[in-house]
Nucleic acid binder design. Structure first.
Lengths: 196, 196
DNA sequence: ACTGATACTGGACACACTGTCCAGTATCAT
DNA sequence: ATGATACTGGACAGTGTGTCCAGTATCAGT
């Protein structure tokens, strides 16, 4: 048994559990899901679940990590086409969010905001990195504050956008977001309504 | 029995429960608390709890509503001293947050972000109102987006500020926040570090 | 195809928390 | 003093968690 490789059965079971979690999260939201729900959906014994993950949260973390690999791959090419002004992350994320909209609705929507910390952390790193590029690598307090500012604003805007039956395209919402981020509220609010 | 007035015993019990919730939330965070915990801390029978509130969430809502009345009172006077540029809400909220810091830490901090929707809604109304004043009452989509943008940014910045052993005063963090909000990232990041 | 290792299964278990109910007791307002 | 109302503690069923185990299926290597 080669140390690194994984038993087919293990891969199969984990994949089933992760997909079940994904489906159920989109359907009813993370907190409302029980381990039993997941196992029923995945058609896996409940005791089996615990041989793979100590609890629901670990499964979520594993699922997200897996999911992020896909996004990370496309991240490499994106990195080259950095525009002069603006974040490179926001546009693609808006698009990706729209594509997996049901997921995001269930994840952030309704009464609970349950956006997992893994995703927030991922976005944070993107933002900090891009901001650091703008000012040269100083890494001071203001950079940190600005990062937090942008990340919080971004999630809130995205949340609103997904919640609505949106008429704005990813490109449009992205443009407004970037305008707010870089030029501030004054630039967006004071002007007459003119999107493009 | 006059319809409007409240039995002493009722007032006493509710007050105890709310204060117990407040203390426990500051201590271990909202989700970790059980109804039994609250009753033990409040020295109230568990069955009594359910004659007043259907569950933990309702108690929280009631507690917050009560708490907000105090803030609302000071809100009236604050309303008059609106500065030419900037939000009138942010400074006082930063101060209030610092005063009840342990509470906020437990509420928003650690692994879970459990800032209750009531507070978020309250801040949102403030922001929307103040932004509407700036642009005249148009109430378009851009106003809504800007509101969300600011609210998200505000909570994230406040969260960061409270989490740290902060060296920044409420006035200082407020100033940076306002600068980011009104003039955008460029104005804050690009310049050399100069706070006052 | 055989075999030892490993993974899956279903069921039982103790535990923790929830929400309901009720009879007994304390406290209220008048 | 008294009738109304609130509190109490304990019992109850229900649901979800996490652990354990003996039996069964599937794996990889020879």
């Amino acid at each position: 048994m080669p140390a690194g490789s994984i038993d087919r059965r293990v891969a199969r079971t984990r994949s089933r559990l992760q997909q079940a979690l994904f489906r159920l999260t989109a359907e009813k939201g993370y907190t409302a899901i029980t381990v039993e729900d997941i196992c029923r959906e995945a058609d896996v014994g409940r005791s089996t679940f615990y041989t793979h993950y100590p609890d629901k949260d670990y499964l979520r973390k594993a699922t997200i990590d897996e999911h992020m690999k896909g996004l990370q791959a496309r991240g490499a090419e994106r990195h080259s086409q950095r525009n002069a002004k603006g974040f490179s992350f926001s546009g693609p994320v808006f698009e990706h969010a729209l594509a997996t909209r049901e997921m995001h609705r269930a994840l952030m929507g309704g009464k609970k905001r349950e956006m997992p910390e893994e995703i927030r952390g991922w976005i944070s790193r993107q933002v900090r990195h891009e901001l650091a590029n703008i000012q040269g690598d100083e890494g001071g307090v203001r950079l940190e504050i600005a990062t937090r500012f942008i990340v919080g604003a971004f999630f809130e805007v995205m949340h609103w956008w997904l919640e609505r039956d949106t008429k704005l395209s990813p490109a449009e919402i992205d443009q407004i977001f970037l305008q707010l981020a870089f030029n501030g509220v004054n630039a967006v609010i004071a002007e007459p309504t003119r999107i493009e």
